[in-house]
Design a protein around this nucleic acid. Sequence first.
DNA 1: GCATATAGTCAAGCCGCTTGACCATCTTTC
DNA 2: GAAAGATGGTCAAGCGGCTTGACTATATGC
Lengths: 147, 147
Amino acid sequence: MQNSEALALTAVLLAAAGELTQRINDGVVARGFDARPAYGFAFTRLSAGGATATELAGHLGVTKQAASQLVDELVRKGYAERTAHPGDARARLVVLTERGWACTRAAEEAAADAVRPWVELLGESEVRALRDQLARIAPYGPIRPAW
Amino acid sequence: MQNSEALALTAVLLAAAGELTQRINDGVVARGFDARPAYGFAFTRLSAGGATATELAGHLGVTKQAASQLVDELVRKGYAERTAHPGDARARLVVLTERGWACTRAAEEAAADAVRPWVELLGESEVRALRDQLARIAPYGPIRPAW
DNA sequence: GCATATAGTCAAGCCGCTTGACCATCTTTC
DNA sequence: GAAAGATGGTCAAGCGGCTTGACTATATGC
């Protein structure tokens, strides 16, 4: 594989990820939620039984302070709340509120809308294959842009 | 395609793009260049005969002020220089210096290194197919993270 | 030739993140 | 079971990279 092809691959990955992210967020906003792109990825983590701020930090690839700040935001906007952590008095379990669940569903709908053109272009099986290949490639990459 | 799958696709795209970007930049730095991820994408545009700051802005998906600031940086670090634009006295054509070309080559090498594990895992034809599919999908997305 | 659009610059501000320091609680070790 | 270290969380300060806004100089269209 030529060297320049590798850079092109990166560019197109960023372009695809960026476009998708932006369109999902636009969709979420259009559905009446005050959100920014990071929320969606926080929600997917929180929807799996809640998480501590530090766990969230690891998931998003930011410091715990940044994650805690994000949780502040989510709490302030009514999407999440901090509850006592069963079995660790230091930690606080962050869980979604009803509105948080609604926003999560909105994000999923918006994501489906955003991906639809791709499905129409490539076919569902191709898109799924794309996702599976990427999952094999970068399963642990931070859900976070690098610049 | 299930709604949640679409979000997962986005997450894995971001993870892959982020990981790749970071590893390329690490490689460039390891080769002795003072760089940040945005440089690589600026270089690919500049290497095609130079560009104006505004063109660069469009390519990177930022304001012209931000692009101009990036050019300042590149000039200060010796990677590029502003030359007179033939045929437009307002504009300045930004072109790579010799060191800029060296950095570009370093980025390409680093990119090839970063992609190598993927090629070993999926095979070259699969990786190429991945790139081509993504290129069909998001040819005009900004080379820029969305959050 | 005048009106408008475009390339670039200067200046100010801001958002989201990081670094650093600290306390409270949990866990390890002896 | 007590001391020592690790870990979750918060407070505070700072900053990098970007945006918005205002302005000048050149180009272009009618």
